[in-house]
Design a binder for these strands. Structure first.
Lengths: 114, 114
DNA sequence: ACGAACGGTAAGTTACGACTTACCAAGATG
DNA sequence: CATCTTGGTAAGTCGTAACTTACCGTTCGT
C-alpha cells in the first residue's frame, strides 16, 4: 500500500498527472492494451498498470478482457462528468464577468465591502 | 525553493489539487482578496498565497491591486485553454466510439455499456 | 511618522505520489 | 502439461507538493 493503490475517485487528480493524461489521450484515440500503452510511454509497464488503476478509479477508463490482454478505453460517462464540472466553472466565470462589465448592480449580492 | 515556488504552467496540475480547485471555484463565483479566500478555507493565508501563485502561473487567475489588498479573479483565457483541451479529448473519444459502433455489426458483438 | 492591515516569501517538516524491480496469477499455445 | 505472454500486485526508494510558522515589504489610517 505504498502508492495510489488506494481508491482515487477524483478525475481532476487523475488527470493532474502528465503521464496519466498521456495515457488518457492515447486511449481517447483508440482503445489499447497495457503493453501497447507502455510501449509508447517512457515508463515501465507496472507504472502504466498503476496509472490505469487510478484512471479507472476516477471512472475515466473502462477495461475489457480479451484473452490474456486487457483492453482499456475511455469511459464516456466519466469524461462527461469532468467536462460538465468544467462547464460549471466556465458559466460561473462568465456570469461574473458580465456583472463586472455592467458595473452597477442594484442587488446586494455583488457588492462587498470590508 | 522548497515548494511550488517554481513556475507551474500546467493548468491540469494546478487544478489537480483540491484546495486550489476550491479557490478557483470561489473565484469563479466572484473575485476575492487573499484574506477572504483564506477565511473560507481550512488552510493558512500563506498557503492560499502559494496556491494563488500556482494558479497564476497556470494562467488560471489574474490579480488586481486594490489598496493593500490583492483582488484575484479567474482568467477567462486560461480557463478557455484547459476547456478546449478537454474538448479535444472529448471529440477524439466520440470519434473513436463511432468507429467502434460502425466497425462490429455483423458478428455476435452486441451492445456493451460499462 | 507610527502602527495596523494585507499579503508575499523563506525555511523547514511531513506526507504521499510516481517510479522502480521482483514476484505471482491467469489465459493462450505448443 | 510446460511455457510463454500479459498484467496486476508487493515492497521499497526518491522527489516534491502541501502545509506550517516566522519574517519582511507596502499601503492605508490616525
Amino acid at each position: 500500500m505504498t502508492t495510489y493503490q488506494a481508491i482515487e475517485l477524483d478525475p481532476w487528480v487523475a488527470l493532474g498527472d502528465r503521464t496519466r493524461r498521456q495515457i488518457f489521450g492515447l486511449l481517447a484515440r483508440r482503445p489499447r492494451s497495457v503493453g501497447e500503452l507502455a510501449d509508447e510511454l517512457p515508463v515501465s509497464r507496472p507504472a502504466v498498470s498503476q496509472h490505469l488503476k487510478v484512471l479507472k478509479g476516477a471512472a475515466l477508463v473502462q477495461v475489457r478482457p480479451e484473452g490474456t490482454r486487457r483492453i482499456y478505453a475511455v469511459d464516456a460517462d466519466g469524461l462527461a462528468a469532468i467536462r460538465s464540472e468544467l462547464e460549471t466553472f466556465w458559466s460561473a466565470a462568465l456570469t461574473n464577468f458580465k456583472e463586472l462589465v455592467e458595473a452597477d448592480e442594484p442587488s446586494g449580492t455583488t457588492k462587498e465591502k470590508r
